[in-house]
Design a binder for these strands. Structure first.
Length: 257
DNA sequence: ATGTCGGCCTTTGGCCGA
């Protein structure tokens, strides 16, 4: 099974990139983030022509996630169970079962806007995600949570100067929540196969960040124990950042035996 | 050196979010 995640920073701007990438890489399932449009504006027919059905959770201007699959999917959720409060309508979560595996695509709140309340909403979201993971573990489900976590888990996960230590992507409370997810028994797929070193998935558009490799590792896959045993590859597709008019994130591909 | 994008409205430029 080949699964992938990609924050495309507007699907309308990146439709051609996604079409070319699907044809080349042919994942079974691709989770997209930051569609930045409502479902009615989503170019689903173009992806269907390539063999991919889309499950779209859209929102005007902001957020928006989709699950593209060439496998049949069932038991769909389009919101994070258990989340309450003003952010519930935000389009940040899609969950399906494909080939017996629960696949969860997320666009976790950035947390740098909206002041203290905005940051707290990020932590609350992470808490609700952990509760969902606990419920799936309790049910002995096989699952993978993948997407744009907006978390740089350690100091090795961003280039010097690419983030302020006070940034919501790297604050101690953010990292503690991420570690609490790991501590449930989940495996950070990239670090399982690449335990040290610079493995980035995002480079800012500003200040020639890609050319200087001033990147971040913020797009992740967390795998339940049996899925982690099947893991054979976890690779950010850096070449995509060098394309014309790229997203600021690259696709990340995970291979399961 | 607050330097780039994308989307939206306040709409041909400014604002927010990232």
């Amino acid at each position: 099974m080949r699964i992938a995640t990609w924050n495309v920073n507007s699907i309308r701007q990146r439709q051609g990139h996604v079409e070319r990438w699907l044809a080349r890489v042919q994942p079974d399932v691709l989770m997209l983030q930051e569609l930045k449009c409502e479902a009615v504006q989503y170019p689903g027919a173009a992806f269907e022509a390539l063999g991919y059905r889309s499950l779209v959770v859209g929102q005007k201007a902001y957020n928006g996630v989709a699950c593209l699959s060439r496998l049949p999917v069932q038991d769909v959720h389009t919101a994070l169970p258990g989340l309450v409060g003003p952010d519930v309508p935000q389009a940040r979560y899609v969950e399906v079962i494909a080939d017996g595996v629960t696949l969860i695509g997320i666009y976790l709140p950035n947390g740098n806007s909206g002041g203290d309340a905005g940051y707290q909403a990020k932590l609350d979201w992470m808490q609700a995600l952990r509760a969902r993971a606990e419920a799936l573990l309790e049910a002995d489900a096989d699952f993978v949570i993948l997407g744009d976590f907006n978390v740089a888990p350690t100091d090795e996960d961003y280039a010097k100067g690419a983030l302020s230590p006070a940034d919501a992507l790297a604050r101690p409370a953010t990292r503690a929540q991420y570690q609490a997810l790991i501590n449930l028994g989940l495996t950070d797929a990239i670090r399982a196969l690449h335990p040290t070193g610079r493995v980035y998935t995002f480079w800012d558009y500003q200040a020639a960040a890609f050319q200087r490799n001033q990147g971040l590792r913020i797009d992740h896959a967390l795998m339940s124990p049996r899925m982690a045993e099947r893991l054979v590859a976890a690779v950010p597709d850096r070449a995509e950042r060098g394309e014309e008019q790229p997203s600021d994130h690259v696709p990340v591909v995970f291979e399961l035996a």
